[in-house]
């Protein structure tokens, strides 16, 4: 479990690696927040490409980061969503608050 952070042109990208559940969410959250609070980026991109599983703890994680970014009018972008993660995001209604980008190779394979 880990997070790789990359700052480029006002966008902080957090590439999350591993399963997101109640057990792992705290460390991910702390790592993202300490960077985001320092940089206050315009956009926070949460990259789920390397997240094979997530439950509603991941929804809490996204919602919390959305609230944090709101403090300086920043946006949250989700990318690399698997169908499972995308389904959860839609059930939660989060898709109305954040921008979603699907996994790039999903369509090209079909």
């Amino acid at each position: 479990m880990g997070v790789r952070l990359l700052l480029r042109e006002e966008t902080l990208t957090a590439r999350i690696v591993g399963e997101i559940d109640h057990h792992t969410a705290r460390a991910v959250r702390e790592e993202i927040d300490s960077a985001a609070q320092k940089v206050k980026p315009l956009r926070l991109c949460l990259d789920f490409t390397e997240v094979p599983f997530m439950d509603s703890s991941g929804v809490g994680l996204i919602l919390g980061r959305y609230r944090l970014m709101q403090m300086w009018q920043g946006r949250v972008i989700l990318c690399g969503l698997s169908p499972q993660v995308e389904k959860l995001v839609e059930i939660s209604g989060l898709n109305r608050l954040v921008t979603m980008e699907r996994r790039e190779n999903d369509e090209s394979h079909e």
Binding site: H22, A25, R29, D55, S56, S57, V59, G60, L61, L63, G64, K87, L88, I91, S92
Partner: peptide, 13 residues
């Protein structure tokens, strides 16, 4: 602590 309150909703879906 950032619980989304969606546990049962997710189970049902």
């Amino acid at each position: 602590e950032e619980r989304a309150g969606l546990g049962f909703a997710v189970m049902q879906s």
